[in-house]
């Protein structure tokens, strides 16, 4: 289901009320012209799945946090911001989760050369 970034919070809370109370995963795909964020939600009772797709512009993308709705979003959102450089509004993680350099590289974006040595800017 394609939705707009501004609808995300309303849509996720509406779906949670309608039985989609299990967050499977959050991730993104870099299509170069856009970055697509994906939210996988599941209705465990009715055995139904739903994917929310949000198109973001590749420069300085950002998304609102959904951690108040799903505690399970905690590490997924931090992974998303480190791997794709998507800023999560409403959260300021004190430290990096997976990356051990400077957190500015966004390694899963297509612009990141996978086999070139990476110099930290710090």
């Amino acid at each position: 289901m394609k939705i707009d970034k501004n609808e995300l919070l309303a849509k996720v809370s509406e779906m949670k009320r309608n039985g989609f109370d299990y967050l499977v995963a959050i991730t993104a795909v870099d299509y170069i012209k856009t970055v697509q964020a994906l939210y996988f939600l599941r209705n465990l009772e009715d055995n139904k799945d739903e994917v929310l797709e949000i198109e973001l512009l590749p420069d300085n993308p950002s998304l609102p946090t959904i951690i108040h709705l799903f505690k399970g979003a905690n590490w997924y959102e931090r992974e998303l911001s480190e791997m794709f450089g998507i800023k999560i509004e409403g959260r300021n993680a004190k430290r990096l989760l997976l990356e051990k350099w400077d957190g500015k590289a966004a390694p899963l974006r297509k612009s990141f050369a996978w086999n070139a040595p990476y110099e930290s800017s710090d």
Binding site: R95, L96, L97, L98, E99, K100, P107, L108, F112, W114
Partner: peptide, 16 residues
């Protein structure tokens, strides 16, 4: 919990 000590970027490796 501090994780990431074994992070080797498998998802990036798969793309290549």
């Amino acid at each position: 919990a501090h994780i990431g000590f074994l992070h080797r970027g498998v998802e990036k490796l798969l793309e290549n």
